[in-house]
């Protein structure tokens, strides 16, 4: 990533006034990055940004209230920061935002799918549009566009929408259409197949709640009703019904708030296509209220307000 040095310099300048700066560094193998908490000057050297900077670091912000926090954001991550600001869940003056032009992040599942398995990665190089991965002594070439996250194809905001320091040149959204619109395809399926689809997908959920904890907007944290006995929304049974219900709770609690960062699906160790539910919710919210979450810090989420006469709701028709 060509702006990496510039970003490091920018952080180095700001660090004395901050308790911590959250960025990314190299992960346990060449295919993975990991969130990186910079507290000291020497931590800055390990910062790395690029196609593996998948984590939405905004998730950590509500837990760090009261501290002076710097955060490096991709365009999509910045929407989560805005949404958190909109809902007064973080204080603007406590957060210093570092933005950079993002050219897309990879989807680990797609790489795994393309290569069969990625347990033994020796190296990974990304040159222009090609990803070269060394796997158990063999070299594999993949087109970058084949392994980019779906959200990157329809990305409208590659540059942070809000930032205190922006490194590099702002880029314009790429209008690639190579990613399949999985929601559109899904909505062509007959009802009974959809019902069966979710039962099958939800069956393998292990209720680890990684989806919830990785979600920047799931701010109830330790007080989630998924684990509450009173009210008793969910049982501890290993049943599709309870697992599915949880995803509906998650989706509905995010209605009008979800910025579609995709962390729920990325975090899921079972690769359950959770984002589909959020995409559908966002699509309807957008159609009904012409609203997108996390774009305008001053906006009110649509389900927290109303109009006496709703332009797009014709409930009297029924």
């Amino acid at each position: 990533m060509k702006y990496q040095q510039e970003l490091k310099d920018s952080i180095r300048k700001a660090l004395p006034g901050l308790d911590v700066v959250i960025a990314w560094s190299a992960g346990y193998d060449p295919l993975h990055a990991t969130p990186h908490f910079i507290r000291r000057e020497e931590d800055i050297d390990r910062l790395e940004i690029g196609p593996f900077s998948v984590h939405n670091l905004a998730t950590y912000l509500p837990g760090l209230r009261g501290k002076k926090v710097g955060i490096v954001v991709k365009g999509c991550d910045s929407r989560s920061v805005i949404e958190l600001l909109q809902e007064n869940l973080i204080n603007r003056e406590e957060v210093t935002i570092f933005g950079f032009p993002c050219t897309g992040v990879v989807d680990q599942t797609k790489i795994r799918k393309a290569l069969g398995h990625t347990g033994k990665v020796d190296f990974c190089q990304i040159a222009s549009q090609t990803v070269v991965i060394g796997l158990g002594g063999e070299e594999h070439k993949l087109r970058l566009s084949k392994v980019l996250a779906d959200k990157c194809f329809s990305c409208q905001y590659p540059n942070a929408l809000i930032s205190d320091h922006f490194v590099g040149e702002k880029i314009s959204p790429s209008v690639q259409t190579e990613g399949d619109d999985d929601l559109e395809a899904f909505e062509k399926m007959p009802m009974d197949e959809r019902f069966a689809f979710w039962q099958k997908e939800m069956d393998r959920c292990i209720r680890c709640y990684a989806c919830r904890n990785a979600c920047p907007m799931c701010v109830c944290r330790d007080h989630c009703l998924a684990e509450s006995r009173d009210p008793h929304w969910l049982s501890q049974e290993d049943s599709v019904r309870d697992k599915w219900m949880f995803q509906l709770i998650h989706a509905y609690h995010l209605a009008g708030r979800c910025t579609e960062c995709g962390e729920c699906q990325r975090a899921c160790p079972m690769d359950i296509p959770l984002l589909l539910l959020k995409k559908k919710m966002n699509k309807e919210i957008k159609e009904l209220f012409q609203y997108e979450a996390g774009v305008d810090p001053e906006a009110t989420p649509p389900l927290l307000s109303f109009k006496m006469e709703e332009e797009n709701i014709n409930e009297r028709e029924w």
């Binding site: 911590v20 990991t34 950590y60 209720r207 680890c208 709640y209 990684a210 990785a214 975090a267």
Partner: peptide
């Protein structure tokens, strides 16, 4: 534990 999300994965 700074980056831990406290999930059960």
């Amino acid at each position: 534990s700074a980056k831990c999300l406290s999930c059960g994965a």
